[in-house]
Computed example of a mutant assay.
Amino acid sequence: MTDLDSFITGLPKAELHLHIEGSLEPELMFALAERNGVAIPFASVEDVRAAYAFSNLQDFLDIYYAGASVLQTEADFHDLALAYFDRAAADGVLHAEIMFDPQTHTDRGIAFDTVMRGLLSGMAAAQTKHGMTSALIMSFLRHLTEDAAFETLAVAEPWLDRIAAVGLDSSEVGHPPAKFARVFAAAREKGLKLVAHAGEEGPPEYVYEALDLLQVDRIDHGNRAMEDRALVERLAGTGMTLTVCPLSNLKLCVVSDLVDHPLDRMLAQGLKATINSDDPAYFGGYVADNYRAVAQARGLSRKDLATLARNSFSGSFLPPSAVAAHLAAIDAYMA
């Protein structure tokens, strides 16, 4: 391990953009398929990995939803979550805000309560095992209707005290944030934080809609905001956190090469960017892999990396006292 590798691994950090279903490694997919008697369209772990050559977001989503079919029981969701937390802890993650897609499961007959109990028990196990804190973000699938999102919000009602925020993910192009303005307003009235994928494949206008119509607390991705100078100035001026995912951007062809990634330009223009892994089982790396890849491609300094780590805590939904403690830990690490 190089000095930079060990520095990145040891740097205290939070992860704010992680789809728990997207941390389903091929080995666990096969184990759960066998455990639950579920047929999957792959003959081997190697076949799954070979299928991970995507050309766009939809190619990825097709495999992602097929993989999710093996998740059937509370134990499956527990095992999925704890496997992610084990990997994240090894990468120096002290706090994770994980997204889950309940509609992916309820639409195939899995009870919302089953998903929640499994994820929450995995989160509790991670706190006991690693001392890691975590929070849940319930994401609406944007290729479905707003009425379907309202139905999910209603089903989630008994669990809302265990859910930190709602989000918006899945196919971005053709499904603008405006489509979900009313359900986001309803979630805000229930005291939930709000995040949304915007400006990954969709245009800068989608980022404006997420800000103005959804009134989000955080933007997931946000790369294409860089195309609009006024938008960049607005995001920088308000301190809006962007949860950037470099290896995801590469795998989904949002950038053709990490040498072209805008992360350092984001920092230079005052944007509160963070580094995250998105769907690490599918995109070739967990959070430290993302730090390493973009640091090498863009020549990021240790100071830049520490800034990104600080942003991950100050952009989190942790209480101010916890944020302050984590920032102090980064200061001590840098000293």
Rank of each mutant, 00 (worst) to 15 (best):
88 A>S: 15
151 E>R: 09
205 E>W: 01
85 F>Q: 13
91 D>E: 04
79 D>I: 15
109 G>L: 01
80 L>V: 01
172 E>T: 13
203 P>I: 08
134 S>C: 03
135 A>D: 00
129 K>T: 14
87 R>M: 15
199 G>A: 05
90 A>F: 10
145 T>L: 04
174 G>W: 15
145 T>Q: 03
109 G>C: 03
202 G>V: 06
172 E>H: 13
135 A>L: 00
98 I>W: 01
206 Y>I: 02
158 P>F: 01
124 A>K: 06
151 E>W: 00
99 M>E: 00
101 D>E: 12
129 K>C: 10
113 D>V: 08
86 D>W: 11
114 T>D: 06
105 H>A: 13
94 L>G: 09
140 F>R: 06
78 H>M: 13
65 Y>I: 12
127 Q>T: 15
112 F>W: 02
172 E>N: 14
209 E>F: 09
134 S>I: 05
92 G>W: 08
170 S>M: 12
171 S>Q: 12
94 L>T: 05
116 M>K: 06
200 E>F: 12
74 E>D: 04
67 G>M: 13
132 M>C: 06
140 F>H: 09
198 A>T: 02
160 L>S: 03
163 I>Q: 02
82 L>F: 15
83 A>H: 14
148 A>S: 01
107 D>H: 14
175 H>F: 15
128 T>I: 05
77 F>R: 09
151 E>D: 08
187 A>K: 07
152 T>A: 10
175 H>Q: 13
79 D>W: 10
107 D>G: 11
127 Q>R: 14
127 Q>D: 11
91 D>I: 07
167 G>S: 08
69 S>W: 03
73 T>K: 00
151 E>I: 01
110 I>H: 00
100 F>P: 03
137 I>S: 00
69 S>Q: 14
198 A>F: 04
84 Y>T: 14
138 M>F: 07
74 E>A: 12
70 V>Y: 04
205 E>P: 00
157 E>M: 11
106 T>R: 07
207 V>S: 13
68 A>S: 13
183 V>W: 06
160 L>M: 01
140 F>N: 09
187 A>N: 06
199 G>H: 05
81 A>R: 12
190 K>Q: 11
118 G>F: 13
205 E>G: 13
181 A>T: 15
130 H>S: 03
73 T>Y: 01
178 A>N: 11
83 A>P: 09
133 T>V: 10
168 L>K: 04
94 L>Y: 03
165 A>P: 07
201 E>N: 14
97 E>A: 05
197 H>L: 04
195 V>L: 06
160 L>Q: 01
202 G>S: 15
183 V>R: 02
198 A>V: 05
176 P>N: 12
199 G>Q: 03
136 L>N: 04
98 I>G: 02
183 V>T: 08
152 T>F: 02
105 H>M: 14
74 E>F: 11
206 Y>K: 02
137 I>D: 00
199 G>K: 10
133 T>D: 14
120 L>F: 04
122 G>K: 00
